[in-house]
Design a protein around this nucleic acid. Structure first.
Length: 577
RNA sequence: GCACCCAUAGCUCAGCUGGAUAGAGCGCUGCCCUCCGAAGGCAGAGGUCGCAAGUUCGAAUCUUGCUGGGUGCGCCA
């Protein structure tokens, strides 16, 4: 149980007591009562808003209620002072022994410190990347990949059961284009002169090996045959090859999905039909005609046609959405609705990580999920903004047509997995992010990756030196030797479990990165005390007892940095090079 | 036209689902250090949280309406 949860429990006990004494009414709603660290440390170690939240219900003033609660908290051994402040906050100062206990807890719990049961074993399906299987991943996919994967790790640490999923769009026109592009490379491999890759085909060289493989397998059997004879075959082969490519790209970032769900299979199995029938039985499907799209210019042609529509407007969407095209095939949305139903059948919560350019489709999918699950399952869509690439301040030029887009593999091979993963989490997902190839590898304080890694490396080097100096890591330490500044670091460390929990519940993994930066900064500050005053160094050769105690503190901080980095999918560096 | 996202220090951004005197890095100013416990340190100035109402004990955070920027809008995927 986290420190804050412990004191929340304590407070609850106090409220129970007041209740049984008849000092406050019995049926108070305590759901908004919080025990938190105050933003301003001068206000103490812990603060609760209980008096303010409950005063109205208890028909009294916040301060009067606070005065009832305060004396009972004062009686608690580990609490050294209780103060009613401001509009009715109750501020608590904890005795140093409470922080020493917490330090021992961190050390004892190790990598499990920060993990919790907040998720109550509920099932969350996180869908991310889901790039079309038509080529290697590029930088645009990279951020969503990292955000999704880190979120999955954070959710798991917070006690959710997580499925990491990739939706493979292998049913649309783009995979036919892929198949035709592969056919072109196949003919090329057989010696045909194909010249420029025509407009509308995929030009990338990555299709050459597929063409060669197809040529090796089938000879010239399909070279001059009509498309109908080879399209399905080539599509299947090309998609499989692209998925393999994508898996390899993801593996570079240490990302491994649990499931790759195929849109084509979904359609073949009749899942889309079934989902639509389900909606139909709820009277949410009808034949209708869409309005002329507002994005069209006046001279653009537009023919109203009758389509099979889903009444998404009943769930807050701007217009009803087609599930079936006029030729009878499914729309993307039709499959997507069925896909989300399938995910919802084995999950309590759905999370999708999408590029911000898909913002327009959020409402319809949420509408479908609500309609199909009768509101049992919620869908949160995290929209991830663009990454702008720079090299020493100069924008990196990219054009898809010219094939000069920066691939994920390029970036990882240039700066490394850890740098990429960390940097992708240094902004809120819905804010655009600048990525400068030069700055992200810079060894300086304004590079958060370096700064956090450096803190961990310092701690490792400290341990190595302590071992050389004969300070025995296994020996018992007298934590009473730690001073207030040192215990202040424990206070910050003790917030880690709350960070993990809030980051999981809010679906915001970037909070871990910011927290680690703060923790690293506090550690470096403490470390720097030793520059002026050698007595304040962590390793103090004239005082092995003190060194032992400080080593314990450093160890705990190192542990938390490691755990936090692990949630981000970043290795903690043992030393800097 | 409509929908979604965004607007916080000169710049780039945090702000822990409504808490107290709004934070960090860069830049700026001042002082210290030139030390392999290296890849600097300490301190300071800097704000009408886009604007205006509302909700309540309390709003950067929630609601509404504006303003300004971004993204998107088809039977595409």
């Amino acid at each position: 149980m986290s420190l804050y949860a412990q004191y929340a429990g304590l407070l609850n006990g106090v409220l129970d007591e007041l209740q049984s004494e008849g000092a406050i009414p019995a049926d108070l709603d305590r759901s908004n009562v919080a025990v938190e660290p105050p933003r301003d440390p001068a206000h103490g170690d812990l603060a609760t808003n209980a008096a303010m939240v409950l005063a109205k219900q208890a028909r009294t003033s916040p301060r009067a209620l606070a005065e009832l609660i305060a004396p009972k908290l004062e009686a608690v051994h580990a609490i050294t002072s209780v103060e009613v402040a401001g509009p009715g906050f109750i501020n608590l100062k904890l005795s140093p022994l409470a922080w020493r206990d917490e330090l021992r807890t961190i050390l004892r719990t190790g990598g499990a410190y920060g993990r919790s049961e907040a998720g109550a074993n509920e099932r969350v399906n996180v869908e991310y990347v889901s790039a079309n299987p038509t080529g290697p991943l590029h930088m645009g996919h990279c951020r969503g990949a990292v955000v999704g994967d880190s979120l999955a790790r954070v959710l798991e640490a917070a006690g959710f059961r997580v499925t990491k999923e990739y939706y493979v769009n292998d049913a649309g026109a783009q995979v036919d284009t892929l198949a035709r592009s592969a056919h072109l490379r196949y003919r090329e491999a057989l010696g045909a002169r194909i010249g420029e890759i025509p407009e509308g085909m995929y030009p990338g060289d990555y299709l050459k090996p597929i063409g060669a493989a197809l040529a090796a397998e089938f000879g010239d059997r399909h070279a001059e045959a009509p498309e109908g004879e080879w399209l399905d075959l080539f599509r299947t082969r090309a998609v499989a090859a692209m998925l393999e490519l994508i898996r390899q790209d993801l593996a570079l970032l240490d990302i491994h999905h649990d499931r790759f769900a195929s849109e084509a299979e979904l359609q073949e199995e009749g899942a889309v039909e079934a989902a639509m029938e389900r909606l139909r039985s709820k009277h949410l499907v009808y034949q209708g005609v869409l309005e002329r799209p507002k994005s069209l210019e006046d001279h653009d042609e537009w023919e109203p046609v009758e389509l099979t529509l889903f009444k998404s407007t009943q769930f807050g969407d701007d217009q009803d959405r087609p599930m079936k095209k006029s030729d009878g095939s499914w729309t993307y949305f039709g499959s997507d609705a069925a896909y989300h139903l399938r995910k919802a059948q084995s999950a309590d919560h759905l999370v999708n990580i999408w590029g911000a350019d898909h913002a327009g489709t959020v409402k319809r999918v949420q509408a479908a999920v609500r309609a199909l699950t009768d509101g049992r399952v919620d869908l949160d869509v995290k929209l991830v903004q663009m990454v702008r690439l720079f090299r020493s301040g100069e924008p990196v030029k990219m054009s898809k047509r010219g094939g000069t887009f920066v691939t994920l593999a390029d970036v990882v091979s240039e700066v490394g997995k850890d740098v990429v993963r960390f940097m992708m989490l240094t902004r809120r997902a819905d804010a655009p992010l600048d990525f400068d190839f030069a700055k992200v590898v810079e060894a300086s304080k304004d590079n958060p990756v370096f700064y956090v890694q450096y803190a961990h490396a310092r701690i490792c080097s400290l341990k190595r030196k302590a071992a050389e100096a004969g300070v025995d890591e296994g020996a018992p330490a007298d934590l009473e030797l730690l001073d207030d500044e040192e215990l202040a670091l424990v206070r910050l460390a003790a917030q880690y479990p709350r960070m993990v929990e809030s980051s999981a519940l809010a679906h915001e993994p970037h909070r871990i990165a910011f927290y680690l930066y703060d923790l690293a900064a506090a550690f470096h500050a403490l470390w720097n005390r030793g520059n002026d005053d050698p007595d304040r160094r962590f390793l103090n050769e004239s005082d092995p007892q003190l060194s032992r105690a400080r080593l314990e503190l450093a160890s705990a901080i190192g542990q938390i940095i490691r755990s936090g980095l692990d949630l981000m999918g970043v290795e903690a560096a043992e030393e800097m090079r």
